[in-house]
Amino acid sequence: MAIAGVYSCTSSDDDNGSTTDDGSGNGTTELHAAFAEFDSDNVTIMMSGTSSVNIETNGLPNHTSPYWSSTNVRTITGPNGNAVVTGPAATDHPLYVDPIITSGDQMAPGNIDDFNGSFSLTVPSSPTLASSSSTTGLGAIGIAVSGSVIYNDEEGPNVPLDSAVGSLDYTAAHTGPQSYHYHLEPKAFTDDDDALVGIISDGFFIYGRKCTSTGTYPTDLDASGGHTSTTQHTTTAEYHYHIQNTVYLNQYYIIFPGDYQGTPNNIQ
Rank of each mutant, 00 (worst) to 15 (best):
M1Q: 10
A2W: 11
G5I: 10
S11F: 10
S12N: 08
D14C: 10
D15P: 01
N16D: 14
G17K: 08
S18V: 04
T20E: 09
T20W: 02
D21S: 14
D22S: 13
G23C: 10
S24H: 06
S24R: 09
G25C: 07
N26S: 14
E30M: 05
E30C: 06
E30S: 10
L31S: 04
A33W: 07
A34M: 12
A36D: 12
D41E: 15
T44F: 08
I45E: 10
S48T: 12
S48P: 00
V53P: 05
T57S: 13
N58D: 15
P66L: 01
W68G: 06
W68C: 04
S69W: 01
T71N: 09
V73R: 13
V73D: 09
V73P: 07
I76Y: 01
T77D: 10
A83L: 15
V84T: 15
V85I: 15
T86D: 00
G87M: 04
A90I: 14
D92K: 01
P94W: 04
P94Q: 07
Y96K: 00
I100P: 04
T102S: 14
G104T: 03
G104M: 01
Q106Y: 00
N111H: 13
N111S: 15
D114H: 11
F119C: 04
T122D: 05
S125C: 08
P127C: 12
T128V: 15
S131P: 00
S131N: 09
S132F: 07
S134A: 10
S134E: 00
G137H: 03
G142W: 01
I143T: 08
V145N: 02
S146E: 04
S148T: 02
V149Y: 01
V149T: 14
I150W: 00
V159N: 08
V159I: 15
P160I: 02
D162E: 05
S163G: 01
S163H: 03
A164P: 00
V165L: 13
S167D: 10
A172T: 02
H174R: 13
G176W: 12
G176R: 15
G176F: 10
P177D: 06
Q178K: 10
Y180A: 04
Y182F: 15
H183N: 11
L184H: 03
A188R: 07
D194W: 08
D194T: 03
A195D: 15
I200Y: 10
G203I: 11
F205P: 08
G208N: 09
R209N: 00
Y217I: 13
P218F: 11
T219P: 11
D222L: 09
A223Y: 06
S224D: 02
G225D: 01
T228K: 12
T231V: 10
Q232S: 15
Q232D: 13
Q232W: 02
Q232G: 14
Q232T: 13
E238N: 11
H240Y: 02
H240D: 08
Y241V: 06
T246N: 09
V247Y: 00
Y248P: 07
Q251V: 04
Q251Y: 04
Q251G: 06
Y252V: 05
F256Q: 15
P257W: 00
G258E: 07
G258H: 05
D259A: 12
D259Q: 14
N266G: 00
I267Q: 08
Q268H: 11
